[in-house]
């Protein structure tokens, strides 16, 4: 039995179908990502699984139980971090996590442990409103995990963070399912899903377009690798004759070779000592998105 089992789930606001017949399973201990641009239906999907909303049709099982209407037996087993920073006004970081610890009936010492684990011990006396975006997200994550839930939901934990703060948070997030916990995360960052998630559901317009591990999805694309080297080491014609090169062209960044056999091409270039300014770019989830929707991915 999986941690989450969603079948033919639909949520509509009037004529607008925010979630339009999606089905997927999340296994226990899995790090599962729901990826898509703003308005794709990610948050609504999460809210349906958490039991905040009543599905228009279809079914949700969370840890084998029906989450809606409010299932108080289920709530101690799940942890949630919501999009906005949902804190009590004017309490400092320690008071916030102690309050949440008490709400879940666990000792406040556990709160202090989590504060330590997310690296906020030094900021314990700072009001939540005064924390930086990254620190506030860390606190929200700590508050979601203080009672050691079996499943934790993270709704865009890195939204509105600068790239440095995002990457810092990844270190924390990637360890969350180490002890068998199931993590379900929404994000509109492709790179984030690629780095963190065991499996990803790519959503757009309320539907799941692709579902699988990031590596599988990218491999499934059969997209070529782009190898760029500095100009004037090879002519376009010479490059085109290297075995395995599908196409060669001169671009602003340099000479670009596209290939499905990057190992052979790189070996040939190395043999000719022609690796100056080398860049190798494999396909990413953005290319998967482009492939399934026919349009550029814009977060």
């Amino acid at each position: 039995m999986g941690a989450v089992d969603v079948a033919e789930l639909v949520m509509a606001y009037g004529d607008f179908r925010a979630v339009d017949g999606i089905s997927f399973e999340v296994g226990e201990g899995e790090f599962f990502g729901i990826l898509g641009p703003n308005g794709a239906g990610k948050t609504t999907t999460l809210e349906l699984i958490e039991g905040l909303r009543k599905p228009a049709s279809g079914s949700v099982r969370l840890l084998g139980e029906v989450p809606w209407p409010r299932n108080s037996g289920l709530l101690p087993r799940i942890g949630v971090q919501l999009q906005a920073s949902a804190f009590f006004e004017r309490l400092d970081a320690r008071e916030q996590i102690h309050t949440f610890a008490s709400m879940y009936g666990v000792s406040t010492a556990r709160g202090d442990e989590w504060l330590e684990r997310v690296g906020l011990t030094e900021k314990a006396g700072v009001a939540a409103e005064k924390l930086s975006g990254g620190q506030a997200q860390r606190l929200a994550i700590a508050c979601a995990l203080v009672h050691d839930p079996e499943v934790v939901f993270l709704d865009e934990p890195t939204a509105a963070l600068d790239p440095q703060a995002r990457r810092n948070l990844w270190d924390l997030l990637s360890g969350l399912n180490d002890d068998g916990r199931t993590v379900i995360l929404t994000t509109h960052y492709m790179d984030e899903a690629e780095v963190l998630c065991d499996r990803v559901a790519i959503m757009d317009h309320g539907k799941i377009l692709k579902l699988g591990s990031p590596a599988e999805l990218i491999r499934g694309l059969d997209a070529p690798v782009r190898i760029t080297i500095a100009d004037a080491q090879l002519s376009v014609a010479e490059a085109g004759r290297i075995a395995g090169v599908d196409d060669a062209s001169e671009e602003a960044a340099g000479l670009v070779l596209t290939t499905r056999r990057p190992a052979d091409v790189l070996t040939a270039l190395a043999g000719g000592d022609q690796l100056d300014g080398l860049q190798v770019k494999a396909a990413t989830l953005e290319d998967v998105f482009l492939d399934v929707t026919g349009r550029e991915y814009r977060a």
Binding site: L52, L75, A86, M103, Y104, G105
Partner: peptide, 13 residues
């Protein structure tokens, strides 16, 4: 506004 209401609703309280 801060979704604290939702957050509390998702706690066992």
């Amino acid at each position: 506004t801060t979704k604290l209401l939702r957050r509390i609703q998702l706690s066992p309280v």
